[in-house]
Design a binder for these strands. Structure first.
Lengths: 196, 196
DNA sequence: AGTGTGCTAGACTGGGCGGTCTAGTCCGCT
DNA sequence: AGCGGACTAGACCGCCCAGTCTAGCACACT
């Protein structure tokens, strides 16, 4: 089916366009970028809004960060998660995605919930499940695991995301160290083992 | 001078308009909202972009949260800060401001830095100074106070802000409790006193 | 060869907007 | 009374854009 390929190309071009220009990007520019006639865009998506929604839905599936639930060292496991999550969220693409989605979400309230659930929400739930296990095993202080998961994720990207959004900081090589420091802090607050 | 009053009215109307409609808000609507002719807007601001920048600058001065640096109980002091900061950031106005500024910041890179410095950056610096004092007094674990301040602020608003931005959560009455729990976590990670 | 389908380029419509211009009104000052 | 500056409503220009329409091209199927 050629249609699928065309649809795919439009979607990809629209994604790139919306991420760089925001919703301002015109349908004609998107068509050009996809190497396709404007009419072809409209033959696959009924309106610009629907195209945007499709892009948003597709984007939201890229965000989820899984956490291996295998037994291994909890600290190492959290550190891997930290680096992966920060990499996804703080990357240029992650920042552009956040900015673009955010500014249009008030117009698409139902979609907004779905995007949240597919990204931050889903990731938090997965993390919370892992933390609960660690709590059950007595390796983490017993407390609301959902709260702990959200707190950990907040610690990981909070102000750093803001800095990137305002163009104040880059996402550099010393990032792994920062992630490690944050994991240390989290463990100090939640680990049942002694602190230094 | 009547001019000042008019300028002020335009600025206020523009602020309200940009916060609710974003940059989409037309100059004519802003003029109407201010009860003023379109020409009057242009007699005070050379272009819509400049008007927007003026609004952004004005908004950024509203964000700073000060922390009393008097000696008192550190935990109580942090808790007051936590409640104040969350109140400012997570309020409907704070969220709208964030969304509006954010989506236009890529076009105004110099302004973006200033807005960051006036808001999050300045608040973090003030908090860091306070934390450093507590560290000097031996009441907090000695560590990079700037990092600690940013981490604390991340903990305070990170995921909660995301939830509000996506319309997933409201800002309700049990907020003070959440702030308190976060302060507890921070103190567990940083306090030099024993933990329960 | 003939038909239909999916595509192409590009013209077109209707509407919105930034920004300018005109003509006229109001008010304070001399 | 007469002048000037700040304001008003509203017309206007040029541009961009979402979405539609037309005419023609290329290829697959029979």
């Amino acid at each position: 089916m050629v249609a699928v390929s065309h649809r795919e190309r439009v979607l990809r071009a629209a994604t790139a366009a919306f991420l760089t220009e925001g919703y301002r990007s015109s349908v004609e520019r998107i068509a050009r970028r996809a190497g396709v006639a404007k009419q072809t865009v409209y033959s696959h998506f009924p309106s610009k809004d629907e195209l945007f929604k499709a892009v948003a839905r597709e984007l939201s599936t890229r965000v989820l960060v899984h956490l291996e639930s295998e037994p291994g060292d909890l600290r190492a496991s959290l550190l891997r998660f930290a680096v992966a999550y920060r990499g996804r969220v703080l990357s240029s693409e992650g920042i552009a995605m956040f900015r673009t989605l955010l500014s249009e979400m008030p117009r698409f309230r139902r979609l907004a919930r779905a995007v949240y659930e597919g990204g931050t929400g889903g990731t938090a739930r997965g993390l919370a499940a892992r933390l609960r296990k660690a709590m059950d095993a007595g390796r983490l202080r017993r407390e609301d695991p959902q709260f702990a998961a959200e707190l950990f994720m907040s610690m990981l990207v909070g102000v750093d995301r803001i800095k990137r959004l305002y163009g104040v900081a880059r996402f550099g090589e010393n990032d792994a160290r920062r992630a490690a420091r944050i994991v240390d802090c989290f463990m100090r607050a939640y680990s049942t083992e002694g602190h230094s």
